[in-house]
């Protein structure tokens, strides 16, 4: 039986605390799209994305309507391009980026991630081509995001790759100078990149993932901050244990909402549900930063920020 107090506490998360489903990301394996003809590779990739994600936005909106909860962004993450578009040179990589951009626009998703490579231990020809293609691939497209993993605890740091990536990054910034260098906001340089990652701009659909999977990102900072704030205003001297307990309960509520929306949408799309990310990434809104949570707990921080590029639509990126 639902208790009024529980209803009001949950409602408060939406009403005052910026709680929403920030991202829905459909991960798609494109490894089966590799081939000797780049036109065919691009067409196969586009068709597979169309088939699997073509109704992502529409069914997402229906899910959002059903529950009365906004979903802010829709994204697609594909297998690292360096793995399935090898052998076609930098121009081939650029063609792939443009094909991904076109299909992303066609199906209405905000971003498509996966223009990426892992080079921490060494760089393949395809990786080099991808890095060389970065300025044009990300600079001439609107929705394509990319990432390169240049280091890992196990393999060390690939300094040659860092040099190559730096040059490309600089060229990308110059190329998109008229948009405040926005091309670089769609690119992440990683150390210890996870095998799979649904979070833009570094999203990829990694090896070890199923053919297709739905991942959900929910916003955390605002809700957690207000919970800590409330605790401090109602209890005279809350201990760190009290605060931890409050954050735990709040995180539970927020992630369960993500899990509910993710499961429902996965059911509608007929794909498995993957994970929920309680995002710590800030938005430009005041009160939506993890740094402010630390301040609320009594810590001191500089300018507040987050751990991971929580990439919103271009106009929201701050």
């Amino acid at each position: 039986m639902l208790q009024t107090e529980d209803i009001l506490m949950t409602l408060r998360m939406f009403q005052d605390e910026n709680c929403d489903v920030r991202t829905v990301t459909l991960g798609i394996s494109l490894l089966d799209c590799a081939g000797p003809n780049i036109d065919v590779v691009c067409k196969k990739a586009q068709q597979k994305i169309r088939d699997l994600a073509g109704r992502l936005v529409e069914l997402g909106r229906r899910t959002s309507e059903r529950y009365g909860i906004p979903i802010v962004n829709y994204r697609v993450a594909v297998s690292p391009v360096s793995l399935w578009a090898a052998g076609h040179g930098a121009p081939g990589m650029i063609r792939v980026a443009k094909a991904l951009d076109a299909v992303a626009r066609e199906i209405g998703v905000d971003f498509v991630g996966g223009f990426s490579a892992s080079v921490e231990k060494g760089t393949t020809d395809a990786d080099q081509e991808l890095i060389a293609a970065l300025p044009e691939a990300l600079g001439s497209t609107e929705r394509v995001c990319g990432a390169v993993n240049v280091a890992s605890s196990r393999a060390g740091i690939n300094m040659d790759a860092i040099l190559a990536v730096s040059r490309s990054l600089k060229a990308l910034a110059e190329r998109t100078a008229d948009r405040d260098g926005f091309g670089c906001a769609k690119f992440v340089v990683f150390a210890n990149m996870p095998d799979d990652n649904p979070f833009m701009a570094g999203a990829t659909h990694g090896i070890g993932e199923p053919e297709c999977v739905i991942n959900i990102g929910v916003s955390g900072p605002g809700v957690v901050k207000r919970a800590v704030e409330r605790l401090r205003s109602t209890e005279v001297h809350p201990t760190l244990g009290d605060i931890a307990e409050e954050i735990k309960c709040t995180a539970y509520r927020v992630t369960r909402i993500g899990e509910l929306i993710g499961n429902e949408l996965a059911g509608r799309l007929g794909v498995p549900f993957g994970i929920v990310d309680l995002s710590l990434a800030p938005t430009p809104r005041v009160g939506d930063s993890v740094g402010e949570i630390l301040q609320m707990m009594g810590g001191r921080t500089g300018r507040c920020g987050g751990h991971d590029g929580g990439l919103g639509p271009p106009h929201r990126c701050g």
């Binding site: 639902l2 529980d6 949950t10 998360m13 109704r55 529950y67 909860i69 539970y252």
Partner: peptide, 29 residues
């Protein structure tokens, strides 16, 4: 102010049971 939310949101945030129990399984599409 008025807010209209599906009851499953509140079940999900206030109860411990598995989410799968709340989600209906519609036919694809």
């Amino acid at each position: 102010n008025a807010y209209l939310l599906h009851q499953d949101i509140f079940h999900a945030t206030s109860e411990v049971g598995a989410i799968r129990r709340l989600v209906r399984r519609p036919s694809r599409g």
